[in-house]
Amino acid sequence: MLTFDFLNARYGDSFLVRWGASAKHVMLVDGGPSGVYEASLQSRLSQLPRNIRGIPQIDVVCLSHLDDDHAVGLLALLREMRRARQDGLPAPFAVTRLWFNSVEELVDRHSPGLSASVRPLLDRAARTDAAVGANYAKGWAIRDEAAALGLSGNHPFDGALAEGSERTLDGLRVTVVAPDTSALKELEQQWREAERKANPDVIAAAYKDDKVPNLSSIVLLLRHDGRTALLTGDARGDHILAGLRSGGLLTATAPLHLDLLKLPHHGSNRNVAPDFFDSLHSDHYVVSADGIKYHHPNEDTLQWLVESRSPDDEYVVHLTNHIPHAVDKLTKLRHGHRFKVDVRASTDPVLVIGVGDQP
């Protein structure tokens, strides 16, 4: 059985994946924006099963990408762990491994040394542009904390997580779907353009419109005991489909069936098109958003989702918060359809979704 605990990450992402006997194995994916760690994530982690030293155990912490609404809470977690170690205090949590891609690693994957040649331009862009500077500083901060805690290296992938990489952890089969080859090529092209023009503004422009973090977003396909889940970060839908096709996981003859699909980029209509939902059918669709800071999920996205399914199909659309425009749209779309809508109650700290039966 796979169980998912989606926290109220406001306009961001933060959730737990639990599997195995008594759901004792845990993966934390993203940490939400500022305040989420203190408001809910820290408390939820403290309730996890404890190891033989009596410390809550986290098998994997995965940061999909460096956007604030995914990364800030994880940085708070790592810093708390490091402070406890420096002060000689008991560790608040035991983390076995951390998965995180630096953009530099991905750029160098196909063009060794390219990131080093562009580094002076990136340094200049970081000094003069707030958006670049924030992402740049965050990336180095996470690498520093990981190194101090002995969590560098993306074990057991032992390198950047990219399309085609696969490992099994305690019965959980983890396949990396993205960054896919086309996304890596786009990143490389942006860096090469900056190098050719010797212009830090090229780097700054790519960060400002989210190209860099979104292209580098980690997408994972999880499989356990016959159940599947696709965790999409903020990746583009076309890159997700390309990665699935490249791995032979998606064919032209039929949609891929999933037990759970987390919608990319909080349901934005900029990341997906109708063919995304035509290609991926799920029993559970999850939108992590609050609809306040951004208009997520977009009504077009919800329309494409429902139109991709037969009126007789039974599935659930989950919202991590009550979002009036989304609830109104789904209510209208439900006419003549059999899907359900599930909204986290404001009194519940998490939205829990279980897929599959206990063995």
Rank of each mutant, 00 (worst) to 15 (best):
M1G: 13
F4V: 00
D5I: 03
L7S: 13
V17N: 04
W19Y: 11
A21G: 07
K24S: 14
V26S: 09
L28D: 14
V29R: 15
G32K: 04
G35I: 02
V36N: 10
Y37D: 02
Y37E: 01
Q47W: 09
L48I: 09
P49L: 09
N51G: 12
R53I: 02
G54Y: 11
D59N: 14
C62Y: 05
D69A: 12
L78T: 00
A84P: 02
R85L: 11
R85T: 11
W99H: 09
N101V: 00
V107Y: 09
H110V: 13
P120G: 05
A126I: 01
W140S: 12
W140E: 15
L149F: 08
G150Q: 08
S152Y: 03
G159L: 12
L161E: 14
L161Q: 11
G171Q: 06
V176Q: 11
W191K: 01
V202Y: 01
A205H: 07
D209T: 07
K211A: 15
P213N: 03
S217P: 04
H224E: 11
D225E: 13
D225W: 08
R227A: 08
A229W: 12
T232P: 08
A235E: 11
I240V: 15
R245P: 11
G247F: 10
G248Q: 11
P255I: 09
D259Q: 09
P264N: 08
H265Y: 14
N271V: 07
H281Y: 10
V286N: 05
V286I: 10
G291M: 07
Y294M: 11
D300Q: 14
D312M: 12
D313H: 06
V317K: 00
N321H: 15
P324C: 04
L333M: 10
G336W: 01
R338D: 13
F339E: 03
V341N: 05
R344K: 13
R344S: 02
P349M: 07
G354F: 00
V355A: 05
G356K: 05
D357W: 06
Q358H: 11
